[in-house]
Design a binder for these strands. Structure first.
Lengths: 122, 122, 122, 122
DNA sequence: GTGGTCTAGACCACA
DNA sequence: GTGGTCTAGACCACG
């Protein structure tokens, strides 16, 4: 599980970390129960500050994607399927609108979504 | 076409404007060739700074969603660039991953996508 | 509204700030809609770092006690009465248990609670 | 008397132990004079470090909730110091403030306090 | 001018 | 050794 950070991006680094870890879990590169790297290790690996990683982990914990056991660090949470969040739905709606404006038909869009949904599963 | 701005949101106001206009076009509330409000009018209507609206319009122009006509101001562009942008795909992939982690099956996810894609068309 | 911070306390500074602001709102020293000091101002006033104040404000926002308008800073939120949180109830239960072990009768305890509840209202 | 520890909680484990034992005494699940499990036994039962349990017991002793007898280990102290501590009062004031901000009337709050105070007694 | 983000350290509580 | 907290700066996006 390697993170690719874009330091010149508009998106904050901690959010890039958050997004990539969420994707990593969704695509089964990170299994439920698996331990994440320690804050220090990940910070060093990426050449960034501890606090930036800490912020990403904090966010992931709030969202229920990971849990941090006081004894052994952060682990991927089994995740209680509480349904998609408002942010998820809003973001999805926007991206689908962009797809339509890019000229895709409904069939093409759904085909694309199907492939993206299954990425990392096959 | 009314904008709903959330001033306490994490998302910058200019981006909220951009997103809602894109969605408005996709959902046919804004037709190709239709004129958008002037920067000044929209700024006053929403109680925000003109610079903020200007930034949103500039972004929309760069992305090809609107064109700025010298005589009639900003109008909805009849045709956008072919194919979804990298940002659109990345965002879509992320949101679909979140859907999966929220417990949706592929069928449920595609059903949801289909409904969101068609919003405002029927 | 003056904050009293105990730098040698076990309780983190940002949490002391959070607690005192919550109490300030409850006791009507801070009215709904009122603007809080800017992060910089409060940090300077208390002789602490910006980030510490920022963390407190972030926490208060998450809990719904304040809202930060992108245009004008942080204001006291009208607060949607969603009922007491799990933490509130747990904390209350613990403190009432301590009261009992301190020898208070139910009447004495309720009398004390009534007075504390009304503090700053009369 | 079973302890329920939340390893991903914000609250330190030793404090969770302390709080639950205090509540256990207040709710008569632990009678005055009763023996607590040995440090080693409790640590093993909960899968935690002995140092953590030791810290909790030490805290409870300082607060007068338990006494350490040379022969029989830790026993519930028959009588605690008179009057609620400063921490108890501060915590109670905060939680009552939160109750008010959660929308409870004085009557509702006192009713709730009454029920929590009597828990485990009836 | 505002809050948000980030750095490069440091100290401490926890386990 | 772990994460949590804090500092004293800095830069930047936003409005």
């Amino acid at each position: 599980m390697l993170l690719k950070l874009d330091f010149s991006s508009d998106k904050p680094i901690y959010m890039q970390i958050r997004d990539q870890i969420v994707l990593g879990i969704a695509q089964r590169q990170l299994a439920a129960g698996e331990r994440l790297p320690t804050i220090r290790a990940l910070a060093e690996e990426c050449g960034i500050n501890m606090m930036t990683v800490s912020k990403a982990y904090q966010l992931l914990r709030q969202e229920g994607y990971i849990a941090t056991d006081r004894r052994s660090g952060a682990v991927v949470s089994p995740r209680q399927g509480a349904g998609p969040s408002k942010e998820t739905l809003e973001g999805l709606r926007l991206r689908l609108g962009e797809l339509r404006l890019a000229g895709l038909s409904k069939e093409e869009a759904l085909d694309l979504c199907g492939r993206l949904f299954e990425e990392g599963t096959e």
